[in-house]
Design a protein around this nucleic acid. Structure first.
Length: 804
RNA sequence: GCUGGAAUGGCGGAAUUGGCAGACGCCACAGACUUAAAAUCUGUUGACCUAUGGGUCGUGCGGGUUCGAGCCCCGCUUCCAGCACCA
């Protein structure tokens, strides 16, 4: 072809973007006739810094799948929105005296234009923001359903409290035990908080994992977080006459218990303060523990600390032996029963503690040397020093002891979960108001559904109050209301919801975003659910992913959604690091601005590089040089037009390469192996260059395969070459399997496992005739040279190995 | 400490999952074009030895299994990420 214009992405790309926008090219079809496909990316938090190079990695990956599915005939819903409530916006607003709603609006506008400049095929008609009243109305509505189902309750919980700013802090704002903003001392202060009873769903959330296609890493992490463990609860009797109940996963080691440990917060300590002769010492230890943050209390390699309770001892229920009771902060009130039996011979933490305080170590499972180290093996161990358990294997001993305990009324089998309930209150302004009213007569009363949303009132200042209340508490006009139940005076809840609330159900709203009667109609939900493919970061595996599964499962149980699980498939992308291999951050000064890259090489080359730079699920350092290499590849694709002839056929000598590329690219996209898909297209382009020629037919295939990654340049080539309808409306290329069959293939000739030459052999050669065939070859005879052949291994299509 | 992941040329990474290690790209070097440079095109590019035929070594370290190991097994080292000492 002649008269090829210069490739200018800065001119081409905005033109196609405007065209797609005007035509709503990527809007999901209203009709339910076609099979549906619902891909999802985690909606971004619209930070003031703008789009990060990390966002396009996940977005491009799912955009490729979305675009391919449309070409395969699916009705695709690929939505975008903004998770816009949150701390950084609020802190920015406080610092600069701009309303958070204004900050949010401006940040979203910037994000939207940056996303549009990258050509993602989002359905912008369905855009949502969690801060929109029409959206958070339904967030509040779901909360009320949880409340009415008894899954929301108030409880005293410790929060991080900065003694100098006098505000509650998020964990993230506590750096090394100090306040991130002022460096002041952070202590734990108890405050009454709304909690969601996610623990009631622990087993359901665990079981649900068996029904979904999540990458194994994600499943493992969710399982570990839920942390189901089977064991027993056992009652020890104290010399005070009380029962002290403990949980253990190793009831088989009961005869090896040589002391007990209670958490410093255990209520029995308070109850028996008169009997405890060293109560002052215990109280001091408890005060010390209370001052420690979670971080310190769980710190690496921490020296075990503890105090023995003087005046109270415990009796081991199976052998009547009296043992001491200690208090130590390595036992947490929030897990199990807040007390443990210590078996130093077979538990590492107990062993360390026993060594430090010189407590006895009794071996009850043979196989190790318990004076040297704890022996924790549960496979081959044999019980000793354990009366009626002696001679049993650990697993059998477990069963036997639980039967015994149950029979005697000393304890019972028990399943425990690590998962804790979800702290749902924030003493902050920029979040959804919790739609509850407190009435002295009626208690906590939900705001009637027809009065939702409870709108966030305008306040002068977003600073939290001195006493740790939310900024909303100062708005007395707003706070004071009437009780929906009795009509008497009442106060609104002034805490707001955490950022996790809005993101726990957003994928449902995308399905029917303009519905003002329901959060989404059942008809639409039945068509679109579940989300077919959800890609996001590993950092959201335990919180966001689990919370949204919890809400969804709850809505299912209430009959509001048609599927038990929200997401069919979950994959994860690796982080993009700075050129120095470190995490990108302002403080390190290694942040790459996507706008600058797009300005230099264009959106297509940027997208291409993000997909080419390495394995999608692994973290990878940025290289602007590498990105320029991707731009060079697009220049080469563009210039193929100069060597294009008029043939609509695939030429004979290229048939294998072209069809192999169709197959490889199609498969690799599905497996998210974008880097090797692109490498194969580069190889094909190199082959066209080597030949100096490409047919129209070949060009059509190439640009169709490349379109999902580089949508603008390929549409432009399609138009310049007058190939007909836009690529987005053409079908995905099919591989001609016949073209992949070759008559002969080159294999390696190995002698004793070392490569000694190459052989061209017919593909039809099977293992049966192989030995005769190879030994007849002159090349082989030369190398064998009369030596004895011990073995001949032939792997068709790969190699032949002759062992001498 | 626990859990999960990783380690391959100067660099980012490939390797059909036990079968020719280093695809593809970057960087570098050389040649063509150019007054010159840039751009572009064409080559070369793991290390060492070499009689120029080729040979030896080589996927973090030490063992093992196998005709054959980057991949499997045992024992380590280092790095990254997450974490709630979970009894």
């Amino acid at each position: 072809m002649k008269n090829i214009p210069v490739y200018d992405p800065q001119q081409i790309e905005p033109r196609w973007q405007a065209y797609w926008e005007k035509n709503h090219s990527f809007a999901a079809e209203k009709s339910h006739e076609k099979p549906k496909f619902y891909p999802l990316i985690e909606f971004p938090y619209p930070s003031g810094a703008g789009l990060h190079v990390g966002h396009p990695r996940s977005n491009t990956a799912m955009d490729i799948i979305a675009r391919k599915r449309r070409m395969e005939g699916y009705n695709v819903l690929f939505p975008i929105g903004y998770d816009a409530f949150g701390l950084p916006t609020e802190n920015f607003a406080i610092k600069n005296h701009i309303h958070p709603a204004k900050v949010t609006h401006d940040n979203i506008a910037r994000f939207r234009s940056q996303l549009k400049r990258l050509g993602f095929s989002f359905d912008y008609d369905r855009e949502i923001s969690t801060t929109d009243e029409k959206y958070y109305k339904w967030t509040q509505w779901i909360f009320l359903k949880l409340f009415k189902a008894g899954l929301a309750y108030k409880q005293e919980m410790p929060i991080n409290w900065c003694t100098s700013c006098k505000v509650g802090l998020a964990n993230e704002e506590v750096v090394g035990g100090k306040c991130e903003r002022c460096g002041g001392e952070v202590i734990r202060k108890v405050k009454s908080q709304w909690m969601l009873r996610i623990t009631a769903y622990a087993q359901k959330l665990l079981d649900g994992l068996d029904t979904v296609d999540f990458i194994e890493r994600v499943k493992v992490q969710q399982r570990n977080w839920i942390g189901r463990s089977e064991g027993a609860e056992v009652d020890f009797t104290l010399t005070t006459g009380d029962k002290l109940r403990i949980f253990t996963t190793r009831p088989d080691t009961l005869f090896g218990a040589t002391y007990m440990v209670m958490s410093p917060e255990h209520p029995l300590l308070e109850k028996h303060k008169d009997l405890i002769t060293n109560y002052d010492e215990i109280a001091a230890y408890r005060a010390e523990a209370a001052r420690k943050s979670d971080f310190e209390r769980t710190e690496l390699n921490k020296n075990k600390t503890g105090v023995q309770i003087q005046g109270i001892r415990a009796i081991n229920p199976v052998n009547g032996r009296e043992i001491p009771v200690w208090v130590s902060d390595y036992v947490l009130m929030g897990y199990g029963t807040g007390a443990i039996m210590a078996v130093p011979a077979h538990d590492e933490r107990d062993w360390e503690f026993a060594r430090k305080f010189d407590l006895p170590i009794i071996e009850v499972v043979a196989g190790g040397n318990v004076q040297e180290a704890a022996y924790t093996d549960i496979q081959d161990g044999m019980m000793v020093n354990s009366d009626f358990l002696n001679g049993l294997k650990v697993a059998d001993a477990k069963k036997r002891i639980i039967e015994f305990l149950t029979e005697k009324g000393l304890g019972e089998k028990k399943v425990n979960f690590k998962l804790r309930d979800w702290v749902f209150s924030r003493q902050r302004y920029w979040g959804e108001p919790i739609p509850l009213v407190h009435c002295d007569k009626c208690g906590w009363v939900p705001v009637p559904e027809d009065q939702l949303p409870v709108k966030l009132p305008d306040v002068e200042s977003y600073e939290p109050t001195d006493n740790g209340e939310s900024p909303l508490a100062k708005m007395t006009d707003w706070v004071n209301t009437t009780c929906p139940c009795c009509g008497g005076p009442a106060q609104r809840e002034t805490d707001t919801m955490p950022q996790w609330a809005g993101s726990s159900w957003y994928f449902l709203r995308y399905i029917d975003p303009h519905n003002d009667k329901e959060f989404a109609s059942m008809d639409e939900l039945k068509y679109w659910l579940p989300v077919d493919w959800y890609n996001g970061g590993m950092e959201h595996t335990t919180l966001h992913l689990l919370y949204s599964r919890f809400w969804h499962r709850f809505l299912y149980d209430q009959g509001y959604v048609p599927t038990m699980e929200p997401y069919k498939k979950r994959t994860s992308h690796g982080m993009i690091l700075g050129t120095d291999g470190e995490k990108m951050s302002k403080s390190r000064g290694n942040v790459i601005n996507p706008d600058e890259i797009v300005a230099e090489i264009g959106a297509d080359a940027f997208r291409l590089y993000e997909m080419f730079m390495g394995a999608f699920d692994q973290e990878i350092p940025w290289s602007t040089e590498g990105a320029r290499g991707c731009r060079r590849f697009l220049d080469r694709v563009w210039k193929l037009m100069e060597m294009m002839d008029d043939s609509e056929a695939i030429s004979k000598d290229m048939a294998y390469d072209v069809n192999f590329t169709i197959k490889k690219v199609s498969d690799d996209y599905e497996k998210m192996k974008y880097n090797t898909a692109i490498a194969q297209m580069m190889t094909l382009v190199n082959a066209f260059y080597a030949k100096g020629r490409i047919t129209r037919g070949e060009m059509k295939v190439l640009i169709q395969l490349l379109n999902p990654v580089a949508p603008h340049i390929t549409e432009e080539i399609n138009q310049i070459c007058e190939f007909g309808p836009e690529l987005i409306h053409k079908p995905w290329p099919k591989c001609d399997e016949k073209a992949l069959v070759k008559e002969s293939v080159e294999i390696a000739l190995q002698i004793n496992g070392k490569v000694r030459g190459k052989l061209e052999v017919p593909t039809s050669l099977t293992r049966e005739g192989a030995q005769e065939y190879f030994l007849a070859l002159e090349d082989v005879q030369k190398l064998v040279a009369g030596r004895e052949i011990r073995k001949l291994v032939y792997v068709p299509g790969r190699l032949v190995n002759i062992v001498l």
